[in-house]
Structures are given as C-alpha cells and as structure tokens.
Design a protein around this nucleic acid. Structure first.
Lengths: 383, 383
DNA sequence: CCGCGATACGCAGGACTTCTGCGAAATTAT
DNA sequence: ATAATTTCGCAGAAGTCCTGCGTATCGCGG
C-alpha cells in the first residue's frame, strides 16, 4: 500500500481465468446449478458459461449430476453441474496442552471425520509432535486417504505465532521458537499453516458461528486464562508478532488475576473441570455459583473494556471454558462493561463447543486452498 | 464476506476499463512517462498502451508534454504523457475547537494553497458552520476555482464520527448528532467526507509521514487529551461507531488523568500553549521539564500499552501537541512501555506539524476521487 | 554534409474471448 | 399424437490484445 506496488495489465487469458474462477465460486456456493442459473448469477452469456463449465468439468473441478431434479418442469431438462467437493480434502488440527482434535473436511467444508483425545499435560515437545504425526497418519489411513488427497492442513496451537508460522510463546513446553509446519512437511506434501488457537476460534465463529454476519469481531476466550482474537473487515488481524489481543499481560487490567481467583469449589463430576462444574451450577441457577461468575466477570471487565475501546467491534463473541454457561453470560458481562465503555457492543456466546478451534483450522486450510484455486492443473478424477 | 456477495463475470469492455485504469494509475504514480516505459510497467503491449493513452488524452485525464526530456538519447524521441494533476482539485479541512485549516490540493496531492486561522473557542455550533462556509468560499474564490473544480472535500473534526458521517461526540458545542456533510452540500456539489481528526492524522502519517512504510499503525495524539487512530492492513479502522482507539475513557488506564496532571509552569512565550512551552523546555534540555514529561509519559503508558497489546502494531506514531519534543519522545515512552507489553513496537514521532489533520483530510478526499476514477466522462479540458 | 545505428511510431494481420441470434432437441402437458 | 416450453449447440459478428514489419526521427561519426 505504500505506493511501490505497480498494477499490471490484463490480457484475454487473464479475463478467461477470472471468469472461470467466477463460475467455479458460484458453483461452490450453490450446487447443483443449471447453466441458465449460472448465467443469471454471473452475468455472463450462456455460450460463455457453457464453455467454462465444459472446461471446469474436464479439469475435474465440477461434474454433471445424473440425479433428476427435485421439481419437474416442462421443457428440455437442463444439465446440472455441481462442485466436486470430494475432489480434495483439508485437515483441521487443534493441539493444546492436553488435548488433540482432528477434523477432516471436504472442499465445501463438510466435516467427514473427527478424532478427539486427551493426553497427559507433561509430554515433552518432541513427544507431542510425534503424537500428532502418528495420529494424523492413522486418521488419514482410516479414511483411505493418501498424502496427495490432502490439499492443506491448518493447525491451532496455544500462544503467539508469528507471521512465518513460528511459535513465539512459552505455553507448551519445548515448543518456543518451533516451526511446527516444517516438522510436518515430511509427513504431507501440502501447505501446513500454524496459527494461534484463539485466532482460529474467531475464524470459526465468523464462518459458522455467532459472528456469521459481522465483519469486525473480537472473540474472547473466557476461562482460567484470557486471550482474544481480532477480526477486522472480515479478515483476521494477527499483529506484527502475532500478538494482537494479548491483553492478559497488562496488570492494570487484572485479566489473569481474575482467572486465578475464580475459586469455585462446588463438587465436580468425574472428569469435569472446575470451569465445567461452575457452568453447570450456573445453569442450575445456583445463587452462589452465579455470584462467583459475576465476581469473575467484574474482574475481567476492564480488560475486555480496553479491547472494546481500542477496536469498537461490531460484535463480541464469548468462547472458551465458560461458554457452556450460555445466554446469561452476555447480560452479566454487559452490566460490568457498561460503565467502562462508550458503547457496549452486541455480545454473543459461542455455540461451537469444543471443536471451535479445529473448525477454524479447517477454515484456515480452506482459505489457503481458495487462494490458490485454479492455479494448478486441477484435481484428479479418481473418486 | 458472509458469502452472500456473488461475484459477477467480466466482459471485454470491463477488461478494457481495467487496463485503462491501470495505465492511468501508472501515469499518476510517475509523470511524465513514455509509451515504452508504460509498456514495461503495465505488462501490456505497445499498441494497446498507445490506444489507451490516446483515449485517456481525449478524455482529458492525461496530456502530452512538449518540453524536451532531461537526458537526450539517440533515436526518434518518444512521446511523453503526464497525468493532468491540474484537471481537478480537492480540499482538506481541519476544524477544531478554536482553529481552522484549509488545504487545496491537486489530483496528485500537491498542495497549491493553504489557510490557517484561530477563532474564539466559545463560538456556537451554527457560527462555526457559518465560519467554515464563508472561509471555504473565499478560499476557493482566491484561487479562481468554481464549485465544479473541486471534486471532493475531506473534513476532520474532533471526536467520534459514525459511518454515516454523523458526529457522535460532545466535544464541539452544539455539534452532537450533526451531519456536517449535509450542511455543506449546498455549498459544493461534490462528495463531502467528515472524519475523526485523529483518524485523518493517521492517514496523513501513512501517506507522507512517519508511517509511510508500515501498514499496521497506531497513531497516538499525545497532549492534554489522548486519542488514537488505528490503521490495519493499510486501511483505516473506524470501528462500529467510529470509536476505535478511544481508550481515554477507561479510568484504569489513567490516560486523561495524566493529561490533567501535566503541570508544567515554565514561563510561556506570548501566544504559546502549555504543551508548546514544555516541548521547548525539553528541547533546551531543562531537567525539570524532562522530569515533567517523563512523569506524564509514565502516566499514559498503561493506556498505550493496552492499545499495543490489543493491536500489536508494526509502528506507533506519536503526534499532537507534544510532538515538537521530537526524537527523545520515543525512547522515553519505550522505557515505560517495556515492562507492560510483550514487545515494544517501533516508535516514531510525527513531523507533519500542525497541518497533519488537514493533510489527512486531503488524502481522504483523494481516496474518494480514486474510488470513482474513470467513472464519469472525464475532466473538462479548460486548463 | 551525409550515412549509419538506434529508438519510437503506426499499421496490418492473426488469435482469442465474449455476445447475439436462430434452429434443433428433449421433455411435460393436453 | 400434438402443442408448448425450455434448453442445447452452432454460426456469425464485434471487440480486445498480441506479434511483426516497414517507416520516421534523432544522435554520432566520417
């Protein structure tokens, strides 16, 4: 943007490529579609769309459907084409201190396989990597997918990740300064994209969650630790060192202090965490639990207010360990924010559950595929 | 971005328009240029560039230069074309509580006239508007410009402005909820764009100032009041209600308290403000002044740290009343930020002086022209 | 003063992409 | 079986870009 980028002109071939992409995207957004419908949505003439569709089919991106249409209409039946979402797959990974989530998705984002497991929090860095590699290998083998069937992998990790994909925080033991993508390069020949977990949760909320209709979003992970993801203009904002939204550090705002002082001692169910137990008690309208939650929210309110004042977002999404509390969370937090901000944004609670980060990793991987759409020769036609 | 926008295909005419814009932009970036040079920078063939250049000249956007080139080379002399920056003008306005700045710029951003005046701070809202109208009229008359010679006007005002251009703060008396652009619509038939003053200062820094090479920038106006402009990805981020960067409100951060407690009582020169006097004393290396400044910076550091943590910007630009202090400001602030942030960004001090906001208003007006470039029939060829 | 090399101009021809329009094909309804 | 309807497929035309060749205009050297 600093004026050094000179725009280059376009020739006929570029025009053709542009229109090809337009048709493919239209078809991906809604499948199947007739040529006539594509004509309407793209603004191109029928012979043109026909030619493009023919080319896309030959390259394996789309296919003609043989199933009859739902509603029968008079006249010659239109040929119907669909985006071949099964032509490739992407993987979304969420690997934290003690859990691993794997999602396998088709090119249209439909999840076709999932895996979740917990593991001891005291694994070494090398052991974690090895765990990820073996599980990933087995996961793909289960689905009878070879290395070339996966086009892109997104990985969410706790803590800051800089713009080269290198991990910049000390949350996971031995992973500081690790280039995780490079370590997996041997496993898979496709792009591997490492990203901060909150950022991916934000992407997921914008894709399928509470933030689907907003483009300026702050997503706050509320739990023992607090961190935030920032989306501006529909695009993730990472910051220079990947540290955007890391307000927890500032002692004046008391974010981490509030988390440490959560202090809910209600009896947890077997395998239930403190935050889960608290959320359950609040849902059961236990007044003591409500008081604990309220005190906690009062503690984190200044930090969230700072984020709100800095960004003035359209929407604030609450996610993380306390999201199971559900709807009451919004008004409770809003009451504490109100005296601290000019304007309390709309607040929504995440409904994506424990797969939010992995879902965001899928979205990230799909974005990568999207940015190189039509670059190569097209998918193979095996399936 | 929520998937509801369907991309439309392009035809030959669109391709032509695209290439026309590419040539015009290349020519605006560097004038004059020969056809051969344009061929290189746009990637188009010579006959194509020639035809586009012919068309642009006919429409009045560019003109052939007659002056001989600086260096003489063998061979037939190449025709040279230049962007007709004088084909239109834009106006940048900075109107505050007690000052008015007007800048007149050509289409290439060159400032061709300036006006600055101070007025009593206790004017009513209507008087302020009337003052602006009369001064604007006289300003244009001085330059022998009619209403149709001005293509766009940018206006910077203190306080929040929402996305419809309506003023949303109570800083200027009677201007709350004012639609200033609508009030000037009768005066000039061109687009009028009202914007928060700090945001425009940020634009100016990114255009010609300290932030020319950065795309993620936070610009802090340091003085009695503190406010911040936020630029992300080279684009201004206003926020839902135009309130992005308004961290001053949060009492935990102590921004305004620090400003109120500035407390420099060194003898001011005639007509000099307290901050100017302080800046002068610091430049003269007065140890007491330095101590006052340092205490002030210590007071605002938590607020700026919150901004830095929220955004993790590439660059922090310090502007406003204390900018005349100059280079020492950066290290002094950095020392206070260091214990509060993960990473202290690069800090630069504005050098644009008192015209920064008006310059940003010019940039904003030029952006407006740019977004509608080639829309109409082209400029008239009078000049 | 004239010829030579160098550079740019201008035009013609060809290739590619898109649009408009018409007749043929395939299905449903009568 | 026939009519109506919708789509398909092809031909023709217009527009845009590229390659290539001959011509025009300059500086330099004999």
């Amino acid at each position: 943007m600093a004026g050094r980028d000179r725009a280059r002109g376009h020739d006929l071939a570029a025009l053709r490529g542009l229109n090809t992409a337009v048709v493919l995207r239209a078809l991906r957004q809604e499948s199947p579609q007739t040529v006539g419908r594509l004509t309407g949505s793209t603004g191109l003439s029928r012979p043109t769309v026909e030619a493009l569709v023919e080319e896309l089919a030959a390259r394996g991106w789309i296919a003609e459907t043989t199933t009859p249409p739902a509603v029968r209409s008079p006249g010659r039946p239109a040929r119907r084409f669909r985006f071949r979402a099964e032509a490739g797959h992407v993987v979304g990974v969420d690997i934290g201190l003690k859990k691993l989530v794997l999602l396998l998705a088709r090119l249209d984002g439909a999840i076709v396989a999932r895996h979740r497991e917990e593991f001891p929090a005291d694994l070494t860095g090398a052991e974690r990597i090895e765990l990820l590699r073996t599980r990933l290998r087995a996961f793909l083998a289960d689905q009878r997918l070879g290395p070339h069937d996966v086009w892109s992998v997104g990985i969410g990790v706790p803590g800051m990740v800089d713009d080269t994909g290198r991990i910049r925080s000390v949350i996971v033991p031995d992973w500081t300064d690790l280039d995780l993508a490079a370590r997996l390069r041997g496993e898979l020949p496709c792009p591997v994209l490492v990203e901060n977990d909150v950022n991916l949760a934000t992407l997921a909320e914008h894709w399928q969650g509470a933030a689907a209709l907003a483009d300026d979003v702050a997503c706050v992970l509320v739990g023992r630790r607090i961190s935030c993801g920032v989306m501006i203009g529909g695009r993730l904002h990472r910051g220079r060192r990947g540290g955007a939204g890391e307000l927890g550090i500032l002692p004046q705002l008391g974010l981490n202090a509030a988390g440490d002082a959560l202090g809910w001692d209600g009896a947890p169910l077997p395998g239930e965490s403190e935050t889960d137990a608290l959320a359950r008690a609040v849902r059961a309208e236990d007044p003591k639990a409500l008081a604990v939650l309220d005190r906690y929210l009062a503690g984190v309110a200044p930090g969230i207010a700072a984020l709100v004042l800095a960004l003035d977002p359209e929407l604030l999404v609450l996610s993380g360990a306390l999201a199971p509390v559900g709807d009451p969370l919004g008004p409770l937090l809003a009451a504490h924010l109100s005296p601290l901000t000019l304007h309390v944004p709309r607040i929504a609670v995440s409904t994506l559950g424990r797969e939010g980060v992995a879902l965001g990793a899928v979205r990230r991987a799909l974005d990568e595929v999207d940015s190189h759409l039509l670059d190569g020769a097209g998918p193979s036609r095996r399936s």
